[in-house]
Structure formats: C-alpha cells, structure tokens
Design a protein around this nucleic acid. Sequence first.
DNA 1: CACTTGACCTGTCCGC
DNA 2: TGCGGACAGGTCAAGT
Length: 293
Amino acid sequence: MPELPEVETVKRGLSNYLVGQRILKLDVLRKKSFQSDKSSANAFLIGAKVTSVSRRAKLLLIELSSNYTMAIHLKMTGQLVYRSEKGDRFGAGHPNDSLISSLPDTTTRVIFTLDKGKLFFNDQRVFGWIKLIPTPEIENFEFIKKLGPEPLEKAFTNEVFIKQVRRRNKSQIKPVILDQTVLAGVGNIYADEALWTAKIHPQTRVYQLSDSQLVKLRKAIVEVLNIGIEAGGSTDKNYVDAQGKKGSYLKFAKVFRREDESCHRCGQKIRKIKVAGRGTHFCATCQKPPKDT
DNA sequence: CACTTGACCTGTCCGC
DNA sequence: TGCGGACAGGTCAAGT
C-alpha cells in the first residue's frame, strides 16, 4: 500500500502519539513480521522510550532510547494502528477505520504495549517486516544503503535525476522510476500519476527521452508526491488518516484506477495495461506511445 | 552487467 | 454456492 506520501503521513501521526512513551511489552503473533530475535527485543526494545519517528524512502524509523532503531517496512498491506487507553486512535493504513471494532484482528502480526496505549502492526499479506538495528549503524543497513536520493530533498536536482535514470538507458521508463536505487519512494500510484503529468508514455525507453522530458518528469514526481502528502496520503481501502477517518479515496488521482474514465486533460479514455508486471494507467492521447518496442 | 520475470502471502472479486 | 484464476499500492532472487 504505502508509498512515500503514505509513509510520511504515518510518520507524522505516529510521532504525535509515540514519542516519549515507553514500550512495556511485545507480542509477536507472526514470526516473519518481527525479524529480530527475542533476546535483542528483550534487551533493546522492552523498557526503551521512543525518542523520535522518522522516514527514509518508504521505511519508517522509530528511534529508541536504547540506541536502537526499529525499522518498519509496510510493503503492500502493512498498517500501524495506535489505540490509546482513552480510546484515541491513530489509524495508519487500516481498511476503513470505522470497521476496526476490535483489535487485534485477523491481520494483526505484532502488538506493542506502551505506557498509554497499544500499537498494532497489521499486515494481511505478511510481506512487511520490522527489524531492530543499532542506531549508529542505520546508514549501513543494507536496505537503506542501496536507496537512491530522496525526491523531496534539495539534493534531488535535475542533474542527479538524469544521471540516475540514464544508468538504465534501455529500460522502459516506468520500472526505472519504481526502482528504489534510482530514486527512493515512488510506487505504482505516483509513478502513473507523474508520467501522466509529464506526458510520457510508461513504456518509453529511457534512451528515447530527451533531457528536457526528464526535467519535466522530475518536476512531476516532486509535484505528485507533494500533492499526495497534502492529501494525507492516498486513501484506498487500506488507509485512513491521522484522525482515523477514511478520507477521500484517491481523489487526486488523474489516471490511477481510472481506466475507461476520461482524461482530465484531453477527454479521451484512460487505459490500463501491464508494464513490467504492474498495472499501469495512462492516456494514450496525452502520453504518446513510443515508435518502436 | 542490464534487464525481466516470478516468488513471497493472503484476501477479494469476477466469471463460469 | 463453489471453484478457479486474476489481481492487489513492494521488493528480492532468480533467470535470460
């Protein structure tokens, strides 16, 4: 589910609720979801206080007073839902919050008991994971080490983007911007949205794109990610906002999940195809197909 | 090396 | 109603 804007929204919400709280208890309902051993959890998690919550790409980082950091990847269906004893809630990625009558539910994989409430890690497909990493080693954590530039930071210039993308000159452009080593944080929704905004067909090969087209694409990526963050993330069935409300379902999307509807720019039908194994939405009129391939 | 495809899991939806 | 197949917002390990 979550791409950069969704994880950013989760980060902001959780930060409000978790920072300063002590972790009292850990319940691992599914071993695959919590990938550190019991002894390190006992030593570095239980009794530790949350000092900060941050994000790198689609990875959530919960820093602890023990000098360890919990790295959490939500993958496709991961959710973090906070419930205070008083009944305050922060839902992050749960299908229709109003339906969460009781937690844990069948998708709950890990439960953290804190001073003032519980944090539930739900993950229907069990692709997501939580790992404990010594905070000083976080930059050397293999997952983080491989990541490309953060698209919303100053260092993500046109020059950097063009250089990164041209490393994969023979590829179709869509899988290239989905590649987290090229840039970090774009997933399937925002890839389709950015390519529509930049008027680039998803199957265009990188070598077929001019530098000025790539400049437009970089700008479009930054723009759609910011729109996503302002909207509080996309709100598919797997997502609710910081107030626990379901919110607007992909309201900002111009192409994603809009197949057979009309293009906001030219009125022609949005089409859906498969590119590099992923569902891909685009307007064949605005986003001209490449000549070959 | 660059690139593409399948696997990882579970649930849901759609057609027969 | 039941069953099979396709599909789902991410990433990694294989394969060519």
